[in-house]
């Protein structure tokens, strides 16, 4: 058992346009990447459950081999910077990924 925080070298979130926030999980070691990918813990359904949102809000989920990366995108409820929004760059939304347990 290991957490994503231990297996990935980069875990980040950032705006992808004004209506979405995209998340990147990148492993430096290929073995760690294979372990994360093959566990199937991270999936469209898995991240929807983690963030406690309907699966339809996860607009994209991709395994990106050239970068040893898993990438998914969540639709914002309101565009970035709207009244009431507090993360205009979308840059602090990744924290819940740290403690995800990978067998």
């Amino acid at each position: 058992m290991a957490t994503l925080r231990e297996l990935a070298s980069t875990i980040r979130s950032k705006n992808a346009g004004v209506d979405h926030i995209t998340f990147d999980i990148i492993c430096r070691e290929r073995a760690n990447f294979d372990r994360v990918r093959n566990s199937n813990v991270l999936s469209r359904e898995g991240v929807a459950a983690l963030f406690n949102i309907p699966v339809e809000r996860v607009s994209h989920f991709t395994v990106f081999e050239p970068a040893n990366a898993i990438k998914f995108t969540i639709r914002r409820l309101k565009p970035s910077g709207s009244p009431g929004e507090t993360d205009v760059f979308g840059s602090q939304q990744y924290a819940p990924l740290f403690d995800v347990v990978i067998p």
């Binding site: 980069t10 950032k14 992808a16 979405h20 995209t22 994209h60 970068a67 990438k71 995108t73």
Partner: peptide, 10 residues
């Protein structure tokens, strides 16, 4: 990894 930065589809 930069090719996938800030975008929905890498």
């Amino acid at each position: 990894s930069h090719a996938m930065y800030e975008r929905t589809n890498p």
